[in-house]
């Protein structure tokens, strides 16, 4: 059983590493962006699918990650500008963890719709700050993001975005996915599941519900920060519209599309969502119409998401217990 997984993993890895050589340049770029969103969605799911807390404002952390990178690259900093992607990632992790800790401490006192709306409030405050602190954040212009050095090497414009950075993003993705897998299967991860099922009972059996929720929140914030930090150099530009309640809706959609009760759900969801969006945008300017319809369709027909649906099918196929 275990060797089967390992073989599948190796095949997947091989496939992922030769992909940029065969697909068109633009799609390598799209794929890299997709992986960034997959990290973001994966982190979001520990809060949403695992702990059962719906935040309608998680684009806050995507924005913090992206703006941290952009701000540290500003020409105004002179000799203190940072171009090393590793340091930038570290900085994004630190800032998103700090903000996540602060905001989380205020938010985790509530659940359900209250939790969602309080987060929405915070993302809009952050959005208003980005807009109004014109001199630091560039207002609606946003900030340009330059090409960082990866492992000490700086590559030219096109190679970076359409080839080399893909591997960097992929490597980070594999690391954080492994870490998340360990978290899911740790006692802490299982306790989160208990909290989702029934917070009151979880408290009775001695789980420190508040602290665990906060921990889950901070983890999801850090993943959002990493996703944003990796996404920013790919995009080459950040603007306040990265962090609004509308973009926060996207990550919820990714999770539900892919299946929020499945570990791989958010990854599949991010892939599906972003590529669907890219493809629909290619054909029509009415892409949000189709996106909206598909969101409704998924909620009504596949509430378990793609992965939820697949895993029930698979289980039936193999005749295992559901």
């Amino acid at each position: 059983m275990k060797t089967k997984y390992i073989i599948a993993l190796i095949i997947g890895l091989l496939l992922a590493s030769v992909l940029p050589l065969v697909i068109p340049k633009y799609y390598t770029y799209v794929l890299s962006v997709t992986i960034c969103f997959a990290i973001y969605a994966l982190g979001y799911n520990i809060l949403f699918g695992r702990t059962g807390l719906l935040s309608f404002g998680h684009a806050l952390y995507l924005g913090i990650g992206a703006y941290t990178v952009a701000a540290l690259m500003r020409p105004e900093l002179g000799p203190y500008r940072i171009f090393s992607m590793e340091l930038l990632l570290l900085a994004a992790i630190v800032t998103s963890a700090i903000v996540g800790l602060g905001v989380g401490a205020l938010c985790i006192r509530y659940t359900r719709i209250f939790f969602g709306l309080i987060n929405l409030g915070f993302v809009m405050v952050w959005h208003a700050l980005l807009l109004k602190l014109y001199h630091i954040t560039g207002g609606t212009d946003g900030l340009p993001v330059y090409i960082p050095s990866t492992l000490g090497i700086t590559l030219p414009y096109e190679t970076f975005r359409t080839f080399s950075f893909y591997y960097y993003v992929l490597a980070v993705f594999l690391i954080v996915t492994y870490v998340m897998w360990r978290i899911y299967n740790s006692p802490f991860g299982l306790a989160l599941k208990a909290i989702r099922e029934n917070g009151v009972r979880a408290e009775f059996i001695g789980i420190p519900v508040g602290r665990y929720r906060l921990a889950a929140y901070v983890i999801s914030a850090i993943y959002g920060g990493i996703g944003g930090a990796l996404w920013a150099p790919l995009s080459g530009q950040v603007s306040p519209d990265v962090s609004t309640w509308l973009t926060s809706g996207d990550v919820v959609m990714m999770n539900i599309l892919g299946g929020m009760f499945n570990f791989a759900g958010p990854i599949v969801g991010a892939f599906l969502f972003y590529n669907l969006k890219i493809q629909i945008m290619h054909f029509t300017t009415y892409w949000s119409f189709i996106l909206g319809l598909s969101a409704i369709f998924f909620v009504l027909v596949f509430p378990g998401g793609i992965m939820g649906w697949l895993s029930t099918k698979m289980k039936k196929f193999y005749g295992q217990k559901a």
Partner: peptide, 21 residues
């Protein structure tokens, strides 16, 4: 051909897509 611009990063993406794809 036409493509929506919206926000700065969406515009950058639209331009890049026009050229690369």
């Amino acid at each position: 051909l036409k493509r929506d611009c919206g926000t700065p990063e969406v515009t950058v993406d639209a331009v890049r897509r026009f050229v690369l794809e």
